[in-house]
Write a protein that binds this DNA or RNA. Structure first.
Lengths: 280, 280
DNA sequence: TATACTAATGACTAATTGGTCAGTTGTCAA
DNA sequence: TTGACAACTGACCAATTAGTCATTAGTATA
């Protein structure tokens, strides 16, 4: 399995350097010092590689972001925590962050495109929930515009830092963005986006119990170690079908699996699903 | 020459649909209903096509932007004018605007990359000059951060409107952005970017008299009609070498050529060059 | 009609692409 | 030493690519 990681790392470098389309499998295998056949031992196709690369990063990333602004954070620290996590995660995974900034949606296959869209929506949802909690005083009509401001500032500062290699003090940067957003939340009156935008994009994302079960099965096939994680997953899967566990037990099981990187995404979707059920 | 325009239009469509790398010359010629040979009658290579496409749009775009915030605009309207021009220009040239948002710098050849970088710097300079004039009261240390805010907001709202097809009232949108930026200019205190960033990027852009003369010669070869434009260009070229005209005459000649789309860029660079000279 | 010219064609090439698979290598246990 | 097995190789394939060029079509002038 270590070779698979090697391929992912080296190919990521090449994608950042030359773009996805312009990087050939040949180039990847050369940089890895392996043969072409070895590549196809680990990935069914070049498309699967890019899909893996993005999915692995994004599922973990979104789940981390979600946790950084979870219920037990004081409302006034939400945005700061959110920003800090994003920028430090970008710093840790500089290559894939750059790939996201440079390469855009074009030229990805349909599956990946849909997935990306879903991540985008989830991301916006998280930001919206941050805004709703941190800026309770602000008129709700402004909330979506504030989401746009956060999105825009994050984007332009990210590019400055990671593409232009401008070095800043992370703490100061986050504080400065929080300051700007807070000022706007306090004083701005003109809003341009209405909730129908979110409504129109939200219904596109379909999380079903079946899709989560499928995901769990996938992960169960992949991990062999970690008895606790395996058994928790099995129990959670059971619960999805039969609803045979109390809430507190489910929360415990979710905490069990969240430590495993491959499960963060499942935990996130699971939480969303049971919240949806509870709300109805 | 009408066929060249056809190629540019149709190829632009395809680039937006599939990306630059994934669009083959074959596809372009098919959509145009012409043969492969005909394509290479108008463009030396596929690279030249994309270069033309971007350069033609950008040179005109930047020059228009620059004019929209020129000296005779009341300071309090500068940012509004700037934003309004950008968004309405994007609306007019929706396809190429989308291309810029979707396709990023990767996979372009070196020449084009340098050019793009130059445009980016010019763009930032224009925004900075807007900020400096409209927000004179604001601490200068905040100016670059305000530039970042404008950049970020423009970017995220553009994507919302042009990629997600969210329709908004242009006037209201611009007012809302101006409001946000003004609020930040008034209240924000934490700044994260220092002028050394601009200093470090600015020296990269080298406009020499020779390069302007070269540009003028290029355009002279391309346009046959328009006697006034031709003669103005020749006189301006002379003046670059000999400095034989008074400032007021030069300004008049610049006004003569600015009406011609292919000359807007030259006029812009020329203005920059003579200002540089005057300042020294 | 004959000539001269440009505009346009599309079969062609050489190179590269993603992907395959018969065969080789290395590493175990028996 | 043998045999079984998985990891790995790289020559190979069909498809596609950007770009070329001998040929043809169309048109204006003589």
């Amino acid at each position: 399995m270590v070779k698979k990681q090697l391929i992912m790392e080296k190919s990521l470098e090449l994608f950042v350097e030359n773009g996805f389309e312009s990087t050939s499998v040949q180039q990847i295998t050369e940089r890895c010092g392996i043969s072409k056949g070895a590549f196809y031992l680990h990935f069914k196709s070049k498309d699967e590689l890019i899909y893996c690369l993005i999915d692995q990063f994004m599922s973990e990333f979104i789940a981390d972001v979600e946790r950084s602004v979870s219920g037990d954070t004081p409302p006034e620290e939400l945005l700061y925590n959110f920003l800090h996590l994003i920028f430090s995660e970008f710093q840790k995974q500089a290559n894939i962050a750059k790939l996201f900034m440079k390469e855009q949606v074009v030229s990805f296959n349909k599956d990946l495109l849909e997935k990306m869209q879903m991540y985008q929506i989830m991301f916006n949802r998280i930001i919206l929930s941050v805004v709703q909690r941190q800026y309770v005083q602000t008129d709700k009509k402004m909330h979506l515009d504030i989401v746009m401001v956060i999105n825009g500032l994050t984007k332009s500062y990210s590019e400055l830092i990671f593409l232009d290699n401008y070095s800043v003090d992370l703490d100061k940067l986050c504080k400065s963005i929080v300051e700007k957003v807070s000022i706007i939340a306090q004083h701005a009156n003109i809003h341009t986006i209405t909730l129908d935008y979110f409504a129109s994009t939200n219904h596109q994302i379909q999380i079903t119990r079946e899709s989560i079960i499928e995901l769990i099965n996938e992960v169960l096939n992949e991990i062999d170690d970690h008895k606790i994680v395996r058994e928790s997953l099995v129990l959670l899967k059971e619960h999805l079908k039969e609803s045979n566990l109390s809430e507190v037990l489910v929360q415990g099981l979710l905490k069990n699996i969240r430590t495993h990187t491959r499960c963060k995404w499942i935990a996130f979707l699971y939480q969303l699903e049971i919240e949806k059920e509870g709300g109805q």
